[in-house]
Amino acid sequence: MYKKNNTLLIYSIIYFAFLYIPVMLLPIFSFNDAIHMVFPLKGFTFKWYDQMIHSSRLHKALMNSIKVGLVASIFSTFIALLAAKAFTRYKVKFHQLSYGAILLPFVIPEIIIAVALIVLWTGMGLQLGLIPVTIAHILFCTPFCLLILISRMEGFDKNLEEAAMDLGENAWGTFWRVTFPLVLPAVIASLLLSFVISFDEFILAFFLSSSDQTLPMYMWGQMRFPKKLPHVLALGAVIIVVTSLIVIISYWLRNIGNPSSKKNNIGGI
């Protein structure tokens, strides 16, 4: 009955092109020997990459982004791991309410969270900077991590944990000897994906970081100046390639060793 549908196939391919062409343009033009992004292409060059490597402000922004990303991904994955265990293993009173509250930062417009945090932070007389950015990123990444980890925890048999308890392990030993090894691929996937989210996040950083620039803010600043543009393209190309690799690895991690790997384990993301 559902053998072939060429119309839909052609449509899908066109849509596929629509999705990818804008993303592919940046790497293409990053090798183009011209300042403006216009056709026809002028010639092949590595000079924008060279310029990128030698920008010290870029280095500083990169380090800031990595710092924020590491802290945010570790904290949000840890927080989400505990919450995922609670949601999948216990009957929680007000389950829906707490689940909804934890997922809410995922849907609320980021700008609202950003300005609300500005009000709170400045209201407490504190300096804006990387700390409020990191807190906001933890808040924003936790829902993603939770969805990833819950889909993994649901995929494995609750009896395994009970079996460990039955064989004499306490809650802590059960977690480290059984639960953790079994969810480890998802934990790594969660770390990688939340790092990517934090690394790419712009709005929260833009509002909350004041003078400490993250990488997206650096790019934002450079985009206005046509002369600076090509090396932003080079940077963008590198970011696109690296994040794509990380994402592919984490998709793969989420599927290996999963007892329910026949199901498409994408858990809402």
């Binding site: 596929f16 999705l19 990818y20 804008p22 993303v23 343009l25 940046l26 994906l193 990517v196 790419d200 996040e201 712009f202 997206p216 790019m219 934002w220 985009m223 963008g236 970011i239 696109i240 994040t243 794509s244 994402v247 592919i248 998709y251 994408i266 993301i269």
Partner: peptide, 17 residues
Amino acid sequence: VLMTLPFWTSYLLRVFS
């Protein structure tokens, strides 16, 4: 994976392109 991959690459860069 292919359909969702572009989503993970920087939002700012996608809008910019």
